Amino acid sequence: MIDMEDAVSIGAEDLGGALLWVAIGLGVLLGIAALAVWAARRRGSTTIVLDATAAVARVWIAFVGLAAVFVMWRWLGGGTTWIPELPVTMAWPTALPCEQPVPPESVGTTLECASVQVVDATIANLPVATRAVLALGDLLSLALAAMPAVAVAVICHQALKGLPFGRAAGRMLMLTAVVVLVAGMGTELATSIGRSLAAGAVLPGPESGADVTTTGIFRLTVPLWPIGAALALAALGTVFRHGAVLQRETEGLV
């Protein structure tokens, strides 16, 4: 089983099978890079690394574009939808409440307490608004995955033109910083909100006393790493813009 959200999740019945799928994926990427290197050498290119990197970036962008089409079909096509990590509250199958006193130290590895907070669920006829929020989360995740490849493709193109510090490279890095900040934080927010709305649409509230209920709260995740990544990309974009100024001044002296 292969699932794509903010990452590619691969499932198999055994560890060897899962690792094999990972190896196949990496092999495909390496094969694309090797093909690009071979084509560049046949052309007599002196920028083989740039050619190969740009080729892999373009293939990655195309792959993300196909994934975006799948996301739109999955969430907006209607019918039955599988939603992972739906927030719920339910009792553990056996009596292992974590609020009880800790039992005497056991011999060997022993599960002392446990709780269930999320489940993977299949839901039919989910409201359109909830589907739209979940689709937004996935699309933002894909934008986050695509932007580094877009930036790499632009920088390589500029370098191949003999303008490694061209204005386009600096602007693209600044745009990438903005997308990483917005999409990086928006992905988790939209996905958390969508999953809570989906749980509320099919499950009763905690006051109902049912065996499986919603948590009764919106537990939102706001990651902080996009802030650091955006700052780093913005700083790099500023360096490229400064390099563009120096490049123009140098060209004017020649």
Rank of each mutant, 00 (worst) to 15 (best):
A114L: 09
A52T: 01
C156S: 06
P223G: 10
W73L: 10
L126P: 10
S9H: 12
I217V: 15
T250W: 06
F165K: 00
W21C: 07
L224D: 13
G166N: 00
G200I: 10
D211T: 04
P204I: 03
F165H: 05
V118N: 02
E207T: 02
L136N: 05
A52L: 01
R219D: 15
A12E: 06
T89L: 07
I48S: 02
T221I: 13
A7H: 11
D138M: 04
A36M: 02
P204K: 01
T47L: 14
L35F: 15
T187E: 07
A62N: 14
L224Y: 15
A198F: 12
V178Q: 00
D138Q: 11
R58K: 14
V254Q: 11
E249D: 12
G216H: 04
F240I: 07
M72Q: 15
M1L: 15
G11R: 13
P101T: 01
C98V: 08
L233P: 10
T80G: 03
V133N: 08
T215N: 05
A143Y: 02
S208A: 06
S141Q: 05
G44R: 03
D14S: 09
L160N: 10
G27D: 01
G77I: 01
T214N: 03
V133Q: 07
A146E: 06
M174N: 00
V64M: 13
A55P: 01
R43C: 00
A52N: 04
D6N: 14
A52D: 00
V128E: 14
V28E: 04
A23M: 07
D51G: 00
S45G: 03
V88G: 03
V118I: 08
S141G: 15
L231I: 15
L189Y: 09
R43F: 02
M172N: 03
W82N: 13
A199K: 00
L126V: 11
E251S: 10
V178F: 00
I61H: 15
V116K: 09
E188P: 11
L134V: 04
I83R: 06
E99C: 06
V28W: 07
A149N: 01
F240W: 06
A230K: 03
T215R: 12
A149S: 04
R241C: 06
G237D: 03
A190I: 03
A153M: 04
P223S: 11
E251C: 03
V150T: 13
T53G: 13
G170I: 08
L173Q: 02
G252A: 05
V71I: 08
A54I: 02
R195S: 08
G65T: 09
I61V: 15
T187N: 05
L111K: 11
P87K: 02
L139G: 04
G162E: 08
F63N: 08
S192I: 09
I10E: 05
A129W: 13
V102L: 15
L231M: 14
A68K: 05
A23K: 04
A34K: 11
T238Y: 13
A55H: 05
V182D: 08
L111Y: 09
A33D: 02
V71D: 05
G11M: 12
V152A: 13
I123S: 11
